[in-house]
Design a protein around this nucleic acid. Structure first.
Length: 293
DNA sequence: TATCCGGCTTTTAAGAAGGT
DNA sequence: ACCTTCTTAAAAGCCGGATA
């Protein structure tokens, strides 16, 4: 395996960059000769020895893994990106083509089926006539319910299948999500994914007029936000304004939202502004709008 | 379907020897 | 000094088939 050979090479680079000798890294559990063979691709370390080796150069497994993946995201994030791009372009045909490709794979494993569902949800989101079987949704909910500690994948999965879930599933799993992502929350990428998914959840709940739960999850999101979360804060404020507007139906409130979006655009994030506008669109009531526009 | 088992392959440790 | 290569016996891992 070429890939695995590179594992040793990478390790060597990382070790030398730190000015460490083989003997500095070697320990009771890992000999110098073993490390040498590993670095030169002549042998592979067993999993436990690899832990020792990585610890020896003062890196975490996550950091090493990140370096090994060539500073790229994992495969499922690539799929996620691909789906998000197709979704943003509203490219239903593109999504259906992707679906075909994923469906054509034989001997599908659990994750193949779950990824399939994510693509289907995105199609369903754009084209409500595209149906998804009940048992597929049940498969999804029972998977999510079965995982005690949600990793980024489960968060990603939940965030990308919200529109398939019934209101009660949405709220139930949403509450579970808030509990179950705690274990891995010290990982920054995890935390970011969690906040984005929470934002998505809130938006879907607003769409479904489940205002009590919106307030509940808004509070949770607000608690988890820190000053670095500009994106999330932008969403948070948008949701609050949107909520006030929907409840009152006042044209003035709508103007406030539009002003807010204009401000976001002024700050230089026109893409986000566009996104907010698209999200606002379904809520603009004709009656609240004197000039049809 | 998961687990156990036997044979086959790979990796390991340690030190000695060789290379730069 | 530092790293690599070689050697050995032992340990561990892997794979497929049988079993429950």
């Amino acid at each position: 395996m070429q890939n695995l050979m590179e594992l040793g090479e990478l390790y060597k680079e990382l070790r030398m960059a730190r000015g460490l000798k083989l003997k500095d890294v070697a320990s009771d559990n890992l000999s110098i000769s073993q490390l040498s063979k590993f670095e030169n691709g002549q042998s592979m370390l067993s999993a436990d020895k690899l832990f020792v080796a990585i610890e020896g150069i003062n890196m975490t497994l996550m950091e090493f893994g990140h370096a090994f993946n060539n500073y790229e995201d994992r495969a499922f994030f690539k799929l996620g990106d691909q789906i998000a791009q197709l979704h943003a372009r509203q490219d239903i045909e593109g999504l259906k083509r992707l679906l075909k490709v994923l469906e054509s794979k034989e001997d599908k494993k659990v994750y193949d089926n779950l990824n399939l569902l994510i693509v289907k949800e995105n199609i369903h989101f754009l084209d409500r006539s595209f149906e998804i079987k009940k048992e597929e949704v049940e498969f999804l909910t029972s998977y999510l319910y079965g995982i005690d500690e949600w990793t980024e994948y489960e968060i990603f999965l939940f965030g990308n299948t919200l529109s398939l879930l019934s209101n009660s599933d949405l709220v139930f799993l949403g509450k579970e999500f808030v509990k179950r992502d705690k274990f891995y929350r010290s990982i920054p990428t995890h935390q970011t994914a969690a906040k984005l998914t929470l934002s998505n959840l809130i938006f879907v709940l607003i769409e479904r007029r489940e205002f009590d739960y919106v307030t509940y999850f808004l509070d949770i999101l607000e608690d988890s936000v820190d000053y670095e979360d500009m994106l999330i804060i932008t969403f948070l404020n948008f949701f609050k304004l949107l909520l006030t507007y929907i409840k009152s139906g006042q044209f003035e409130e709508l103007l406030q939202i539009k002003e807010y979006i204009a401000m976001v655009r002024k700050l230089g994030n026109s893409q986000l502004a566009q996104h907010l506008e698209a999200n606002l669109e379904p809520f603009i009531q004709v009656s609240a709008c004197p000039r049809s526009n």
